[in-house]
Amino acid sequence: MTNEAWAVLVEEDGKVHVVEMTSGSRKIKGLGVFDPLEVIAPVAIGEQVGIGQKLLTRMPTRLPELNKGMLRRAQTISSKDAGWFTARLGIGSGDRVLEAGIGSAGLSLHLARALGGSGTHITVEPRAEHAEVGLENLRRARESWVEFPEHHHVEGTIETVTETIQSHCESFEAIVLDLPDHPPAIAAVAPMLVVGGRIACYCPVTQQVERAWEACEEAGLNVEWAGELMERQWGRASKGGMRPVNGPFGHTAFLLIAQRL
């Protein structure tokens, strides 16, 4: 179930457009000039609509569609890594999650979906230009989904805004850090973890994951897992059968999970 605040339109090649359903003719990037309420509102989920020279299918505003059609500025955490984080952290309804390094909110969307209407999600980002994009993507999700967590955003580096964070929430079941320098942040937020709570670090290079591991141990946390996830897509071959598709099979980041015992 969704409301009519946003609409998802998918081109035949899979490209996704997320359109705000406000009245009045205006230019929609990639689609042209038209009135969304007039053109899209009468189209049911699953039906097609012609806009300019494009034939598009209206789809629900679910997580995969909003993620694929999200606004982007900073590098985003892929669904491969975001889904693994969400599962390994054990995030669910009613939990409290602190996320530092919101970027374009690729991970934030996954966290918000898992937390539902009874969870609390606090994001921290020192770069206003990145936060602007990420918060807009979260707004789309909040206005599209039936349930959305209580959300607060704090501007600044996480180790300098701990008092502001704790004015919203004193402790957390999960903390996620996507930062260039993890140790200061780990030292600052590890005391906020509840017993059994977990911290996750997203580290593009080996030096970062090693320093994060050392910082977690210094903070009294038990490192449960560190490594990387590999993803390889397969498709149908022209002469029958299945084979790996041609495309990138590279590194995204090293991931680390540590728990407070």
Results as ranks from 00 to 15, higher is better:
residue 6 W to E: 06
residue 6 W to L: 11
residue 10 V to N: 00
residue 14 G to K: 00
residue 15 K to Q: 09
residue 15 K to M: 14
residue 19 V to P: 03
residue 25 S to F: 03
residue 25 S to R: 15
residue 25 S to W: 09
residue 27 K to S: 14
residue 27 K to Q: 13
residue 28 I to F: 07
residue 32 G to C: 03
residue 35 D to I: 09
residue 40 I to N: 04
residue 46 G to V: 01
residue 47 E to M: 04
residue 51 I to M: 05
residue 51 I to C: 10
residue 53 Q to R: 13
residue 55 L to N: 08
residue 57 T to K: 14
residue 58 R to L: 11
residue 60 P to D: 05
residue 68 K to E: 15
residue 68 K to D: 10
residue 70 M to Y: 13
residue 71 L to Y: 08
residue 71 L to G: 03
residue 72 R to T: 09
residue 74 A to V: 01
residue 75 Q to L: 05
residue 77 I to H: 02
residue 77 I to V: 06
residue 78 S to M: 10
residue 79 S to H: 01
residue 79 S to Q: 08
residue 81 D to C: 01
residue 84 W to N: 04
residue 86 T to L: 12
residue 87 A to Y: 06
residue 89 L to S: 02
residue 90 G to W: 02
residue 90 G to K: 02
residue 93 S to Y: 02
residue 93 S to R: 09
residue 94 G to R: 13
residue 95 D to N: 09
residue 97 V to F: 03
residue 100 A to S: 14
residue 101 G to Q: 07
residue 102 I to S: 13
residue 102 I to N: 12
residue 102 I to W: 01
residue 104 S to L: 00
residue 111 L to P: 06
residue 114 A to T: 09
residue 115 L to M: 10
residue 115 L to K: 12
residue 121 H to F: 15
residue 122 I to N: 11
residue 123 T to C: 07
residue 126 P to V: 09
residue 130 H to M: 06
residue 131 A to T: 03
residue 132 E to S: 12
residue 134 G to E: 06
residue 135 L to K: 10
residue 139 R to T: 12
residue 140 R to K: 13
residue 140 R to L: 04
residue 142 R to A: 14
residue 143 E to N: 02
residue 144 S to P: 05
residue 145 W to D: 07
residue 146 V to I: 11
residue 148 F to K: 08
residue 150 E to A: 08
residue 151 H to E: 13
residue 153 H to D: 11
residue 153 H to E: 11
residue 153 H to Q: 12
residue 156 G to I: 00
residue 159 E to G: 11
residue 160 T to I: 02
residue 161 V to M: 02
residue 161 V to N: 07
residue 163 E to F: 00
residue 164 T to C: 06
residue 164 T to R: 15
residue 164 T to A: 11
residue 165 I to L: 05
residue 165 I to P: 01
residue 166 Q to S: 13
residue 166 Q to F: 00
residue 166 Q to I: 05
residue 167 S to I: 08
residue 168 H to K: 11
residue 168 H to C: 15
residue 169 C to M: 15
residue 170 E to A: 12
residue 173 E to I: 08
residue 173 E to S: 07
residue 174 A to P: 00
residue 175 I to E: 07
residue 180 P to Q: 14
residue 182 H to M: 09
residue 182 H to Q: 13
residue 186 I to C: 10
residue 187 A to K: 12
residue 200 A to P: 00
residue 203 C to I: 00
residue 204 P to W: 05
residue 206 T to Y: 10
residue 207 Q to A: 11
residue 207 Q to M: 08
residue 208 Q to S: 04
residue 212 A to S: 15
residue 212 A to G: 11
residue 215 A to H: 03
residue 218 E to M: 07
residue 218 E to Q: 15
residue 218 E to D: 14
residue 223 V to S: 05
residue 223 V to Y: 02
residue 225 W to E: 14
residue 225 W to T: 08
residue 226 A to V: 13
residue 227 G to M: 01
residue 227 G to P: 00
residue 231 E to H: 05
residue 232 R to H: 07
residue 239 K to M: 08
residue 240 G to K: 06
residue 241 G to Y: 06
residue 242 M to N: 09
residue 242 M to G: 08
residue 243 R to I: 07
residue 245 V to Q: 06
residue 250 G to W: 00
residue 250 G to S: 12
residue 251 H to Y: 00
residue 252 T to L: 01
residue 254 F to D: 02
residue 259 Q to S: 15
residue 259 Q to I: 07
residue 260 R to Q: 14
residue 260 R to A: 03
residue 261 L to A: 12
